[in-house]
């Protein structure tokens, strides 16, 4: 067992868990935050995506005990019914889902991805390695490729991300 203190969605949370506990299992099974989803549990589907210190990662592929003192943001921290984040609202408007299982991961991933674009991180389809990163549909598809949607709501997901990004810029 290992004691770990996490700062989740702005709130300090204490965890006492087996060292084998992944961050995803800690969130879901120990801390009652079931927004983050377990899809493949092998870092292949992205349903478990959360932000750690502002960066998106697969919470299934990291141990909770490694994150002592880290700032974790889950989908619950982005917005809530009646006070949705711009991306959450855009996903609703554009029907960016069907079953909804991948949606929390999609939204956490997209939230961080838009910050990466603002910081000019290049991608494998960027027009330039060093120029301004642009938010084209192909850029969104490439940068979101770590989030699978078995219902294939991809066109609507791209539209939702595009609208939310344009609204915030």
């Amino acid at each position: 067992m290992k004691d770990t203190t996490l700062r989740i969605n702005g709130e300090e949370r204490k965890l006492s868990a087996d060292t084998r506990t992944t961050l995803l299992d800690a969130l879901r099974n120990h801390l009652g935050l079931t927004g983050s989803k377990k899809g493949c549990d092998h870092g292949q589907c992205g349903a478990c995506t959360v932000m750690v210190n502002g960066r998106r990662i697969n919470s299934c592929l990291t141990l909770a005990c490694m994150h002592d003192g880290d700032e974790i943001t889950t989908v619950e921290g982005l917005g809530e019914p009646g006070n949705l984040s711009p991306l959450q609202a855009a996903f609703v408007k554009h029907d960016g889902f069907q079953c909804g299982y991948c949606t929390p991961g999609q939204i956490c991933s997209a939230t961080a991805m838009l910050e990466e674009i603002k910081d000019n991180w290049p991608s494998n389809v960027s027009g330039s390695l060093t120029g301004e990163a642009k938010l084209t549909p192909e850029e969104i598809s490439e940068r979101m490729s770590g989030n699978l949607c078995r219902c294939a709501a991809y066109p609507n997901i791209v539209d939702a991300i595009r609208e939310a990004a344009e609204a915030s810029s």
């Binding site: 870092g43 992205g46 995506t49 960066r55 998106r56 990662i57 697969n58 592929l61 990291t62 991933s109 961080a112 991805m113 990466e116 940068r143 979101m144 490729s145 770590g146 989030n147």
Partner: peptide, 9 residues
């Protein structure tokens, strides 16, 4: 290589 999430880890 990999995905945005994995490249961050």
């Amino acid at each position: 290589g990999a995905s945005g999430q994995l490249r961050n880890s």
